[in-house]
Design a protein around this nucleic acid. Structure first.
Lengths: 191, 191
DNA sequence: GGCTTTATTGAGCGATCACTCAAGTATATA
DNA sequence: TATATACTTGAGTGATCGCTCAATAAAGCC
């Protein structure tokens, strides 16, 4: 009996993610979303509940995509090579709406107000850090890097490096590929 | 004949800087500013012209303070030691409203909209990078680090590291002092 | 085709945004 | 003290914010 929605919900979340990623939370109005998603206010709220709820969905999707891309890379070229190639991959993609990390942007924008979305982004960053740590552990088990290093510490530094790299890549007039190379070189010296 | 303003304009800019630094551009409303500066709308606009004009003043002041602090440090302990100590200094101060870099935050928030303040922040970041480069050059001339390195490349990487460090320090539940130590250690290996 | 059920529409809600301005007040000079 | 010159005040501007809801349209089951 029911009428079906005329849109692909998942594709709408993708579009919203790109918009939020680029413009941030406060920088993206419901007018922007309505225009990009081709949805009138009523449909928008029926589909997603609120701006914040949709933002949360896009954060999860963003984090999942990143995690899957890195895991796929590791399955293909091994843990160390994946960690080495990942930085360049993050800043050389042409389809991404922006180079900077959406999770970092969200924390920076919303943490001062104790917004729930900042906590979400922070937790997803911790999850990414854990993924990095397990790849460093795998690299140690594969004898690709020395066993004396603390995988947790390596992961923390690696994530910090990625965030800095991606902010630099976002800036105009800055060539960040040199930084990506240096991060990869630094990992090579852990052998 | 004229009546004098009843406030210290410079101190007001300081207070506004801390507010903008913490909450960002969109996150700081005129209500917030009026409350923090104890200024009614009319006085505010008479004194500063607009929210954006005041934000620009605070960006300049923020950048100047950072530059002077690093130069003072270098004059005291020399260029290499200054570059090594600066990271920890940035994240261990208790009086700063937030650990993250205000210039980076501004670029991330406003660059997507091509806001003039993003250009200003970007230019100030470039100025900081140039300061780092000249300190690396000075360290080479003092034979503190090897002359084979490109000061410009070192400065670019150093700035990227600082940005990542400061975002990490801003996050809850992350101990960033380890990262600061590693940055300092990395510089020691340039000898 | 009739009926039920849900999606879609868009005018408009109260709140807040950055900002203005005319009226009132305080101060330094003459 | 009188006057000119600012500074201070706060109600109020139009625009935009996220969001609501009653009315309308379309699709599946009988």
């Amino acid at each position: 009996m029911p009428r079906r929605p005329s849109f692909d919900r998942d594709e709408l979340i993708d579009r919203a993610r790109d918009l939020f990623w680029r413009q941030g939370w406060a920088g993206t109005s419901l007018k922007d979303l309505e225009a990009t998603l081709q949805l009138k206010p009523g449909s928008f709220y029926a589909a997603f509940g609120s701006k914040d709820a949709l933002f949360a969905l896009t954060l999860e999707k963003y984090a999942n995509d990143g995690r899957e891309r890195l895991n796929a890379l590791a399955a293909k070229v091994g843990p160390l090579k994946a960690l080495q190639d990942y930085p360049m991959m993050l800043i050389s993609g042409t389809n991404a709406p922006t180079k900077a990390c959406m999770l970092a942007k969200t924390v920076l924008e919303l943490q001062a107000k104790n917004h729930a979305l900042a906590k979400t982004a922070n937790a997803l960053l911790s999850r990414a850090e854990a993924q990095f740590a397990s790849l460093f552990t795998a690299a140690q088990q594969a004898k690709e890097i020395d066993g004396s290093h603390d995988p947790q510490a390596l992961a923390r530094r690696y994530q910090s490096d990625l965030i800095g790299l991606r902010v630099s890549a976002e800036r105009k007039g800055v060539d960040a590929t040199g930084i990506a190379d240096e991060i990869a070189d630094g990992l090579a010296r852990l052998a």
